[in-house]
């Protein structure tokens, strides 16, 4: 629930979207304010730097506003889809794979981070680990646990059934557990 924006009801959101479609500047500004942080967080867990996250968020906002007249259906499902496309383009451009390639690499990253920071270790490890989930796992984890949507809402946003979302959620948490289990194994192994 924590990430959910509370300042607009669904009805208000709908009204702002409709006004924004008619180029009402105030409505456009209000809408941007409303969804900017959500999009930023959605992107943040899927790219490697804050600067990139901000740039991409700005890009998404622009695309959203430009494409508003064509918007149909659930507003947030639509903007998250745009955000996903922007992220895909980003990785295509940079020829960087967003998903984890090897747990060994991830563990190395975690160990390096631990050496340099020492503080907020678990949080950083967790954030880093989320970035190494698959694309759809990241989407579900961010929407469910960062943005605070319930399973039915997530299903609506990502265009899948609630059952599919539950399965993805289960696999994502299991993957994270495996990553941490491997990390602990490595830690013990190094100590030993």
């Amino acid at each position: 629930m924590k990430g959910k924006t509370k300042d607009l009801t669904d009805e208000e959101l709908h009204q702002f979207v409709e006004k924004a479609k008619t180029n009402d500047n105030r409505a456009i500004g209000k809408l941007c304010e409303h969804f900017y942080s959500k999009i930023y967080r959605f992107i943040y867990y899927r790219v490697n730097s804050i600067d990139d996250a901000e740039d991409l968020t700005s890009d998404v906002c622009l695309r959203v506003i430009k494409s508003l007249p064509e918007q149909k259906g659930l507003f947030y499902a639509w903007i998250f889809r745009i955000a996903s496309n922007v992220i895909t383009d980003y990785y295509r451009r940079r020829a960087v794979r967003s998903n984890v390639t090897s747990i060994g690499d991830l563990i190395e990253e975690m160990v390096d981070e631990r050496r340099t920071t020492g503080e907020l270790l678990e949080q950083q490890e967790l954030r880093q680990a989320i970035k190494h989930l698959t694309e759809e796992q990241q989407q579900v984890i961010v929407l469910k646990f960062i943005e605070g949507y319930d399973t039915d809402e997530v299903a609506e946003l990502v265009g899948k059934s609630a059952g599919a979302v539950r399965a993805i959620q289960f696999r994502a948490l299991t993957a994270l557990r495996n990553i941490f289990a491997s990390d602990m194994y490595i830690r013990k192994d190094r100590k030993g």
């Binding site: 924590k2 990430g3 500047n25 456009i28 500004g29 941007c32 304010e33 900017y36 942080s37 930023y40 967080r41 943040y44 804050i50 996250a53 901000e54 968020t57 700005s58 906002c61 622009l62 506003i65 678990e122 949080q123 967790l126 954030r127 989320i130 984890i141 646990f145 960062i146 605070g148 948490l173 994270l176 557990r177 941490f180």
Partner: peptide, 27 residues
């Protein structure tokens, strides 16, 4: 426990500069 940990992560928030420049670009 993992789900709880993720929910307890501090929310990353964009900077004011980022939001402002995005709005200016849109403008």
């Amino acid at each position: 426990q993992l789900a709880e940990q993720i929910e307890n992560l501090p929310l990353p928030n964009p900077s004011f500069e980022s939001l402002s420049s995005a709005l200016i670009n849109i403008g």
